[in-house]
Design a protein around this nucleic acid. Structure first.
Lengths: 160, 160
DNA sequence: ATATTTACCATGTTATCCCGTGATTTCCCG
DNA sequence: CGGGAAATCACGGGATAACATGGTAAATAT
């Protein structure tokens, strides 16, 4: 279960750091394997992240949706929905949580060189602070926290 | 389990490259044998790919589809569907994932000299980017990713 | 016998993974 | 509440394995 927030600047080799709390949760979710699953968020301009164990829920999720569609007499394209669910990429990260974001995800999530992590239960979201700032009602907390963490990270950099 | 995306241009000897993630999954699915199973997708203008172990699921797949058709009051020709499922071709690939696509699959999948791979759980699909671009609602992410990967592949080629 | 295809090998290059070091935080006990 | 020890974490660098690519030999077919 993913909660809390985090922030990371891109490092020398183009790596971001998965914040400790998320790191541990993702590790546990993958039987100790350090693999982060990444996908584009279906509605927002950001990415979603989760651990491998979430994938086990996909088949039952497909069955559930198929059942609902049947009851209501609606169309359901199982193959299409499967491709959406399984479209995530598997990205390995090291002991200190560093991972290289595949190039295409920079575009998909409108990311540049600083990212904000926001816990969301079964998954968490990964934001470009600028995109997060554009969101409207209900986002005040996240926006404020993001600004704080960003300021901290910048000052930490400057201190050297 | 097949997830993520991939892209390949046709090489000098008319070979495509099965992307690393899919390559490993297909290998594991076939007890280490490097054999890619290929068939036409029953409804879309693309191919489906999978490893040999998928065949064990065909009977339960037939049962599932038959059940859904029954509930909906639709016709279901089990023998026909069985021939589609079991009609796949076995295509060997080498250590670096290269394989020659049999001629008939170029027609069946409307493929030319660049292909896009899309993970879909129990199988993955293989697309001509132009055909993928014609698909409608729900395909936006795949289309965007395909365009990105295509651009990358082209620039990688140009850099030399 | 020759041309064509297929499978395998061998090389250079890139990216991935892992270790060591220093800094920071946390926690516990004084 | 303050100080100190231990664990956790950040960061840089380097060894290693994975990958892409071109070539070569064998097998098949014509």
């Amino acid at each position: 279960m993913y909660s809390g927030q985090g922030f990371s600047l891109i490092g020398e080799k183009g790596r971001f750091v998965l914040p400790p709390d998320f790191r541990k949760a993702v590790r546990d979710s993958g039987q100790g394997e350090r693999v982060l699953c990444l996908a584009k968020h279906p509605r927002w301009k950001c990415l979603t992240g989760f651990g491998l164990s979430r994938v086990e829920e996909f088949e039952s999720e497909l069955n559930r949706e198929e059942g609902i569609a049947l009851e209501r007499g609606l169309d359901f394209d199982r193959d299409l929905r499967a491709q959406q669910l399984y479209g995530f990429a598997r990205v390995p990260f090291d002991d200190s949580g560093r991972f290289v974001l595949p190039e295409r995800f920079f575009k998909l999530g409108a990311l540049s060189d600083a990212v904000f992590f926001q816990g969301g239960g079964k998954m968490f979201t990964i934001w470009n602070p600028a995109e997060l700032a554009k969101m409207g009602n209900g986002w005040e907390d996240a926006q404020e926290t993001c600004a704080d963490l960003a300021a901290q990270a910048q000052s930490g950099k400057a201190r050297k």
